[in-house]
């Protein structure tokens, strides 16, 4: 090997990764700084807790989405699965009690996710199409199940999950960090996590290394579905009702968070903390622009532009 080449490789290796991996964090700090200067109500403890609670919904979905995208897939059905799980959970809860209701909601989410995975691996349908179909099926299923009306009259004890506090901290925030830590451990410290990265990075090489790649993909989609179900339950608790239109468009926020976080849509590359930062950026943009009284119409434009800028910067660091 030529000495010059080796030297260059080593340099590339250090420098580009720093830009790529930490650029998004710098972006988050920059965003917080800008909003803090523009609005004095922004950087206060109470507002930060509000931001985090808002963020948690996207964060749950984005963490699940990370597993899917790291495995070189995509899940467009999370918003609809969320709604269906919330509706079924709320429905079961009315007669069966809180515990059974939550369990039912989670089971529906995980089940639909597993179904996605099976369709993709066994019927060999691209993830984009399979989950697009599920997006329609689950949304339609929700409307059928609820007859298009919110399910209300949920037990009061159910309110804790979405509206409760532990100390001063809203419960969804705590749950978000618990889920994040668990997901982080799974991705970094378990065999399955390695398999997700390897399958996403090169499915043929992964298979040729003895990995049962179908199982890896099915599991990733099951995790995404499960977390969608969890989000549906929390959202139902927070709103004290299951809305048939809940979670519409959330899939795009979740994908945006993952991509903002530096994960490659081709799979195999990306870090979970980036996803969390990406979710926070989405949340802070919402909150900050609200505080500055930017109309919700313009907010969408701004969000889109921020995604473009962030991904452009990330790519320039890659080369």
């Amino acid at each position: 090997m030529l000495p010059g080449k080796r030297y260059r490789d080593m340099n590339n290796f250090k420098f580009k990764n720093v830009v790529r991996q930490y650029g998004i964090l710098i972006g988050l700090i920059g965003l917080i700084t800008v909003f803090s200067i523009l609005s004095e109500r922004f950087f206060t403890l109470s507002n930060m807790l509000i931001v985090m609670r808002q963020t948690s919904f996207v964060a749950f979905l984005a963490i699940g989405m990370s597993f899917v995208i790291l495995g070189a897939g995509i899940d467009l059905s999370v918003g609809s699965v969320l709604a269906f799980s919330g509706a079924v959970g709320a429905g079961v809860m009315q007669n069966g009690g809180v515990f059974l209701g939550i369990l039912a909601g989670l089971a529906v989410g995980a089940g639909l996710g597993a179904f996605n995975g099976i369709v993709i691996t066994k019927l060999k349908i691209p993830a984009f199409i399979a989950t697009l179909a599920m997006m329609a099926i689950a949304r339609g299923g929700t409307l059928v199940y609820t007859d298009g009306r919110p399910i209300t009259g949920l037990p009061s004890s159910f309110g804790f999950i979405g509206r409760g506090y532990i100390g001063n901290i809203p419960f969804p925030i705590i749950l978000m960090f618990i889920i994040f830590v668990l997901a982080y451990i799974v991705l970094k410290l378990t065999r399955f996590g390695r398999y997700v990265y390897a399958t996403g990075g090169n499915i043929n090489a992964a298979r040729a290394s003895g990995i049962k790649v179908d199982n890896v993909i099915i599991s990733s989609f099951t995790i995404s579905g499960f977390l969608s179900g969890l989000t549906g339950i929390i959202l139902a608790s927070r709103l004290n009702s299951a809305q048939p239109t809940a979670g519409m468009g959330y899939e795009l926020d979740a994908i945006a968070a993952v991509v903002l976080g530096g994960t490659s849509l081709f799979g195999g590359e990306g870090e979970l903390w980036g996803t969390l930062v990406g979710a926070f950026i989405m949340g802070i943009l919402n909150n900050g622009l609200n505080m500055l009284n930017v109309s919700s119409f313009y907010q969408q434009v701004v969000k889109g532009i921020v995604i473009l800028i962030a991904v452009t910067v990330a790519q320039s660091g890659k080369k």
């Binding site: 390897a198 090489a205 195999g268």
Partner: peptide
């Protein structure tokens, strides 16, 4: 590169 390695991952992995 096609069947032997996941080139975007580390040497250790």
């Amino acid at each position: 590169r096609e069947l032997g390695l996941v080139i975007v991952r580390s040497v250790l992995e």
